[in-house]
Structures are given as structure tokens and as C-alpha cells.
Design a binder for these strands. Sequence first.
DNA 1: TTGTATGCGTTATCAC
DNA 2: GTGATAACGCATACAA
Lengths: 333, 333
Amino acid sequence: MSNIRDVARLAGVSVATVSRALSNPEKVSDESLEKVHNAIAQVGYRPNMLARNFRSARAYAVVVLVPDIANPFYSLFIRALEDRAQQKGYAVLLGDTRGTPEREMEYIRRVETRLADGIVQLRPSSEKSQNNIPPDIPCVNACGCEYTTGPAIRIDNRAAAKTMVNYLISLGHKRIGVISGLKDNPHAIDRLEGYKEALADAGIPFEKDLIAEGDFTMWSGLNAAFQFCNMKVRPTAVFSMNDEMAIGAMQTLKNQGIRIPEDMSVTGFDDIAYAKYSDPSLTTISQPAEEMGKMAMDMLLKVIEGEPLSQRECVLPTEFIIRKSTGPAPGKK
Amino acid sequence: MSNIRDVARLAGVSVATVSRALSNPEKVSDESLEKVHNAIAQVGYRPNMLARNFRSARAYAVVVLVPDIANPFYSLFIRALEDRAQQKGYAVLLGDTRGTPEREMEYIRRVETRLADGIVQLRPSSEKSQNNIPPDIPCVNACGCEYTTGPAIRIDNRAAAKTMVNYLISLGHKRIGVISGLKDNPHAIDRLEGYKEALADAGIPFEKDLIAEGDFTMWSGLNAAFQFCNMKVRPTAVFSMNDEMAIGAMQTLKNQGIRIPEDMSVTGFDDIAYAKYSDPSLTTISQPAEEMGKMAMDMLLKVIEGEPLSQRECVLPTEFIIRKSTGPAPGKK
DNA sequence: TTGTATGCGTTATCAC
DNA sequence: GTGATAACGCATACAA
């Protein structure tokens, strides 16, 4: 494997000139430049980035901490993040934590040991469940929810949820079930707030029994729906806090002979690709996953480079998408 | 930021001892070990992996080249790959190529410049579309198809497809449509072979018109299904080469008033999570994505370490899963 | 078991 | 514009 010295020798210049020819070509005469390039081509030289990174004390890599890469919302986000990183000359180290703090620590350690320059955190964290990232390491929260302290990209979960529930109310629904995430999940907390606000605005009393707890998997949605089926007075609409659970729930409802949306309306959150192809297609809230990924990367790079941020937190707009899983409350028109 | 010298000084030993204490603790006396650990704790020392990797000429990282991380089959595979990599102390650099050779080259360059030690290639490549990975760089193909030259993890696409089509034939179907991938896609080629073999075994003539070309996206499946709807004599079953296209196709068929499986059976391939929750649930072939991910990582590490491979290629079994999207051909029982 | 000394490939500082 | 050379932090061959 040839190194910079081999190139220098062959080109008849010093190593300094070769180095400059590669990183600051404008500081080198055209003549030298050509000699260097010829030599490089001749020996098939490839700069050793390990050495370069070591020397410049930069990994040119960032870690993305994601609860589960197999979740389509996250994979979309990461695709955009990676795209931007590539543009900027950075690598993305995949940090699928599978929800365990131990694995999360492993990855945080990677930046402490200089293998990465910063972190994009996708795990939502509230006051309770702090993310254990030391304050001195560059980090951007892109979990999309409130209660973060550092730089963050997020959406207004409360407002989005409220919009959705308002819509259901406008369709005549008064008894609206919720399939929530785990109780202490920040997304779930924010979205539940929005639900409550919408009810309050309409003068509908809040009923604790209408909240079914899930964990954002299809399976949990499937399960939660049974709770509604078995109620003496069923809800006429179900607000699910993500699309997967909504899809799972619709499965249960249809199996129980409940027609969607004639007997019961169902809504989701995220607008994953399958939401459009579910049966019926899902009314949902679209999060700008790709936009979020790009912005998170840009933001993190600024933090790494020490540039000032124009704003600590960036709240991106969501889009309310009406499809066929929602309709007038039974008996209404 | 403290370095190994600071630790050595504080512990009252040499840097060599500190280095050994960290990487070969068995070569250091218990006494020194304790002194070193105390010193490390005291100054909050974190080894600079950039330096270590540089020195040992190893990145302890691998690149995974994936056509699209947002595809659920791939994300499942990668999750397993990453899990295994983490266990072995390796990082996974995400290489989402979006199908472009340019981006693929970018990533190959990353290992040429020592930022990664090897590549897991998920893009299928045939004789025509070679993967342009230089022969000297460690690489494992895990695209799951034939025609690879180097180390590979794959499934028997042809046999799996044949099993599926045999099943349809056993249900009385004689006119079986295919939603294929792009014509030159190796997966598509192999699976089409299996389809043809099954037909031949049953004495059913092959009809070119029954092949609709897609590109493995839901949208293309949706589109392809129209081709069948508009035929004078419609097929009674459709063999789709992946689940996404099958889900898209079912959407079209249902919209056209075609009942599944009463009027037409539909089958998929991959068994992604949504296959179980589609309407109706999808009969499909399950690929051992996670197993493949783990094995690919293990195999690549052997190549990197220069260990001999017990077998160049490893063919993993698939599972045939019958759900509700298939039934007897119309008129049969 | 431990310490000393050298070098990994590059960039950057300085003199020329 | 160019060249000589000193770092960067660590692992390791060799000597003790």
C-alpha cells in the first residue's frame, strides 16, 4: 500500500507538497500539481483517512441513535440524514439501541473515544427519562417532541393531535377512543394533551376508560382494539398515536365485523408508506421525516463546527391527511 | 483531553503498561492494573480510538451497501447485521446507494481509504450488472441471489418461487400472472425461472403476456395490477415477486371489484411485517432476513481477519407461509 | 513483568 | 511555492 512519501518521491517533490496538492491545491503551482497527480495515478495512491482523521482529531462521522431502524418512520428519517451527511463528507454510524440504555451508552462511548464527532438522538426523552448524553458532546435531538434541552428538531405533537381530534368531532364523533403509546412516552404525553384540549374545547368530558395503552407496534394496536370492541358503549372513532397501531387496530375491528368508517372511524399518525395502502386507507398526520433528517444533520454539523445556531429548536409543520378510514359518526350525515 | 501519557504519569508506570492494561490485561500484574485503573478513573481518560485504529491500521467498521434503507426487508437485515457488528466491536457505516453507481463508488472509496475494513453488499448483481467492488477489498454478498462470485449469503429464489407457483397450481390455477421486478434484476430472473419450471412441470404453457414488470415498489404493483384487470381472460392468480407490489396490486384489484381470493389469488415474497396485516393477509415466502444479517457479518469478519471460509456461499432456507390471499381457482373447490 | 524507543501517515509550522 | 521536520496518541519490538 503506497503512502504519501512514495508519491512525493516519484513526483520529485516533498511530502508537504503532495499533502497540499490534495487539500489546498490553490497553494501549489500547476507544474507541481500535475507531477503529483501523475504520480498518484501511477502508484494508485489512496490517502489513508485513518491517519488524516487521527491527525486532524476528527472522525468525520456521526452516530444516529435510533430506537428501531425497522420502523418505517425512522428509516425514512435516516435515509435523509445519511444523504445529507454524505454530501457533507460525513459518515453515519448506525446506532440501533433496541431501547436499551446499555446499547445507548455503547454508542455514546463511541464519540467519547473519538470514533464519531456527534450524535443525532431519535429517542424521545422527557424530564423523567433523561437521555444520558454528557453535555459536552455535540448532540441534536430529532425525536420530534418537546421537553428537550439541547438543540432540537421537532413537530408540534399537541397541535397535530388536536387538529385530528377536532376533525373527528366535526364529523359528529363524541365518544373517541385513543390508542396511546406507553404512558410515559413523551410523544404519547404530548398527543394526549392535544386530544384533551380538543375535547375540552368541544365540551366533551374526558373519560379515562377510552384510553388504551399500546407501544407503537402493530401488534399492540391489534390488541388495544379489543378493548374498544368489548365496551358496552363503543367509541365511534379511534385516534391511534401512530399508523402501525392503527393498522393493527383496523385488523381487529374488521375481524369483529365492525365496518370502517361506517361503524367506526380510525386515524393514525406519521403517514408511513403503508398508510396509503391499508384497507381502508388511513386518515393520518404526516411528519416531514426527510426534512427532519436533513435539518438534524445540518444542525449537528453546526454544533460540531462550533458555529452558533440561529435557533435552539426548530419546529416543523405537519400535514393533516384525510383518507378513507374516517367518516361521519353513525347516525349523522 | 487526557491521553495515555497522563495516565501513565499519574499511575507511576510507563505508557506501555497502560496500553497493555487496556488491550492485554493478562500481561500486566494485578498491582499495575489497579494503579492504572485508578489513574484512568481519576483523570476520566478515554482512549483515542482514532489513534488506536490508525496505529493498528484497522477501522473496526464495515460499510453496508443497501439500495434503500426504507425497504422493510433491508432494514430488518441491517438491524441484525448491526447487532452482530456491535457484539464484535465493529461499527456499521450506512451506505444507502439509492441505486446510483456514483454513490456506491463513494462508499467503496471509503474502504479504499481505510475508513472501513470491508463491505456487505445488498445490491443484487448479475453477470451484466457487475458490482464494481475491486477484488482486493473484503466483501460479502448478501443480496440473496445467485450469480455472485465472492463469498455470499443467499436463498434459493428459484426453488422458493417454484414452491409458491406449485401451490397455486395445486389450488387449480392455470392462468397465473406475475408481477416481476425489472427484467434484468437478478432476483426477478431467478424467481421467474422458478415460475417457469413450475408451469412446465404441470404442463401449462408459458405466456409472455402474463408477466407485468414492476420495480419492487407498492406503486408499481398497483400499476401492474391494471394490466391484469384489463385482460380479456384474466388470470385467476397473481404471483408477485415481493410483498410491497402484492399489497399495491391488491389495492387495485379490490378497487376494481375483484374479490381476493375468491376471484383472484395474490401471493407475495419476503414476508415483511405488513404482509400479516394486509387485507387480506398475504400468502408469501419468508426470507430469514435476520439470520442473513448475522451470517453476513460473521462471514465478512472472517474475510477481514483472513480466516478461511468453510464454504464460499451459504444458502439459507426460506419458509412458505399460507395466509388468506390465496384460495381455490374460481369454479374449483 | 516492565520500560524505552520507534514508527504508523498525515498535516502544519516554520524557514527558505 | 516549496521542503524539512515536528507533532498527533497509541501499540509494539526489544531490552532489561
